[in-house]
Amino acid sequence: MANWFDKILPSFIKKETAKKSSVPEGLWQACSACSTILYVPELEANLYVCTKCDHHIRIGARKRLDLFLDTGNQTEIAADKRAIDWLKFKDTKRYKDRLVEAEKKSEEQEALVVIQGSLLKLPLVAAAFEFRFMGGSMGSVVGQKFVEGVDHALKNQLPFVCFSTSGGARMQESLISLYQMAKTSAVLQKLKKEGLPYVSIMIDPIYGGVAASLAMLGDINMAEPNALVGFTGPRVIEQTLKVKLPEGFQRSEFLLEHGAIDIIVHRKDLKETVHRLLLNLLDKTLAQ
């Protein structure tokens, strides 16, 4: 990605650019799309959207909920749950060791964070996947935390919002992970029956078991621009079918065009949009 800016950069900065993720926490961060070095306070003020190319840079679950929810009056739900190694799963590493690594890397205990709070004064329950925790994969704890979040919404008659970003069901818990798809879909049925809205917000990327369950089941499905969302990953499709995929395949704009989502929302408009839609839905519900 050599643009004019890269060319005039001193070589030591270019090196940092090449290893995007290795830019140390601090004042400068490289955009993961255009590699422009961005000034972090400015980036944060811009909600981690690249000021140059408008790329929506990946942010952690807690940060995302921080940006989304009003400050104060937040209660985390099912915070203390940790994964169980049901199968004593071992690939090149033991699952147990992977969990320890994931916790260190993400500073979270699992790949989902659930918080009761409010959005522009509207009380709700919001969940967010943590992609740095084993690719946001859904195992038993993610499923359980999701269910407890929805149960909390049911009990308190609140809307439910989930920011999904996930590689899919977690291999290391095999069938137990697969069953979380059914479990999360089942609890969402309860929410539907209660007349409480569920807004699913799709964040780059979502695949497999999370796409084919809770992410697609929103009363309103929305996506950030340019997010990749699908059942089968593009690499697998290319390898299996030996075809070249069309430009923009499985991107938010593709999903919108094919009728899979309601709306694409820029990060800067997210709070107002979700708030407005929820108010509209809830007023209707109250009127009945």
Binding site: M181, A211, A215, L217, G230, V236, L241, A260
Partner: peptide, 15 residues
């Protein structure tokens, strides 16, 4: 795992 399956909403159909 096909292009057309994705176009027609494989994830949604399963979910």
């Amino acid at each position: 795992p096909g292009i057309d399956s994705e176009e027609r909403g494989q994830s949604e159909a399963i979910a």
